[in-house]
Every structure is written in C-alpha cells, then in structure tokens.
Amino acid sequence: MIKFQSYRKRKSYLQAVIIIILAIVLTVTSPFYIRPLFSAVLYPFQWSAAAVWNGLAGTPAFLAKLANLSKENALLKAENQELKVKQLSFDELKTENNRLRQVLNFNSAYGLRLMPAQVVAKSGSPWFSIVEINKGSKAGIKNNMAVLAEQGLAGKIIEVSLFSSKVLLLNDPESSVAAIDANSRDAGVVAGALPAKLKMKYVGVEGNVKAGDRVITSNLSSLFPPGIPIGVVEKAAKKEHDLFYNIEIKPVVDFLKLEEVYIVL
C-alpha cells in the first residue's frame, strides 16, 4: 500500500513537472494560434454569460415595479406598466442616441471611422488590465488598432480571434503611448500604472507641465490618432537634480467600469 502511494505520488510529481515545463515552453515560444483558438472556444459561453448577467442586473428594479401592482386597479396599473416599459425603452433610446451623438462627434472632430463593441469579459487578474470585446477578425479587427471609450483613449487591440478580440487597456503597465501636454505642448510617453492611474514619462524638467493640464495623444504616435484625450495632470513634480518630471495623470476613461468601446478602423 505504501509502495503504491509512493508510486502514485512520484507519478503526480512527474505530471506536474511536465505541465509546468509545457507552460514555460508556451510562455517562451508564445505560439500565435493558442490563445485565439481557445478564446474562440470560450467566447460563446462568455457571450451568453455576459448577456444573462446584463439581463439579471436589470431584473431587481423591474421586479420591484411589478410588486407594486394591486388587484383593484389592475387595468390602470397594466396601462401604467405599459407606459413604464415605453419609458424604459425611450430612456434606452435616449441613452443610445446620446452615445451615438458622442461617437458622431468623435467622427467629425477627429475624422475617424469607428466600430462600436461591447466588453464581454475582463482578465480577472490584478496584474493585467485586459478586456475581451465582442468584435474579432470576422468584423475586420486587426492587431494594434486603437480603441477609444466615449471620453477618450482606452487602449489597443493585442490579440484577435474570429469573433472576439483582446484589448490592452491604457492603465496596464505594458501600455505606452506618445502624448503631449495640450497647454504647454511638452511631449512625453504616457504609461499605465495599476489599478487605474497613468504616468507621463520623459518630459524634461525644462518643460512647463502643471496640474490641471489636459494630456492628449501626440502626432508622433504611429498607432493612435493625434489629439485624443488621455487624462488630466494630477501631479507634476520636479526635483533639483532630476532630468525628467514626475507626472501623474488622472485618466479620462474609467477603466474599471468600461462596458462599451469604439475601435478605430
């Protein structure tokens, strides 16, 4: 019995070592098809779960309204309910109208062709800021396309599968974008800092960056269109012997609550 247990354990160790070596090999070689392939397998489940979750999130308010119905004035209440439903759909249309208006503004202001997409899933790891959206290669999405939110720059596409894509958000430490201070025109590189901050690097101390200045994408960037809002300078400090400013930026986009994005085509 002891011999069998020892054999079983040795077999488990061997299996664990093989799996860990495989994971390291996958990390080092990073075959381009593995993640898109499994993402495509997982996507229908995620899409369904997101749809169910979004539906459930709106249900309690709806049920609370139904609970107020009384039998005496059923007809009146039914009519009332109908009006409420109409009101709800009107509100939804109004919200959508506002959103589309903002997209149109984006289009006219920056001359961009945008494709709206919904956030389906998020990375769930505290060390990454990545979301999965419901548009993939079938919709014409390609790697490195810029992704905007209603308020400004959100990130870029880093991986595309058939029906979905992954977006590396700007607050991920691996993100970086050429940017300028809209007031002083000082140029630098904006990089992510978890959980939801940004830092502007390589701005020389001879510059004139101040708290409250708007930071926008620069025309030096090959990936992002120029002039897209990134954030507002929260802190700009320079010490005596420093070469560069220490700049903290409050992003205009709320990365933790991102639900809808627009891909620049």
Binding site: A16, I20, A23, I24, L26, T27, S30, F128, I130, K166
Partner: peptide, 20 residues
C-alpha cells in the same frame, strides 16, 4: 489555470501556480 491564462497576455503563470 490554462483557461484563466487564455484571457491574459504573455506568461502562463496561472497554469504554473495552480499546478504547483
């Protein structure tokens, strides 16, 4: 761990940590 890593970028850290 592997399916958790599918949603991330770069390393397959979750596979390694969960197996360990």
């Amino acid at each position: 761990g592997f399916f958790q890593d599918i949603l991330l970028n770069g390393a397959y850290l979750n596979t390694i940590t969960k197996v360990s």
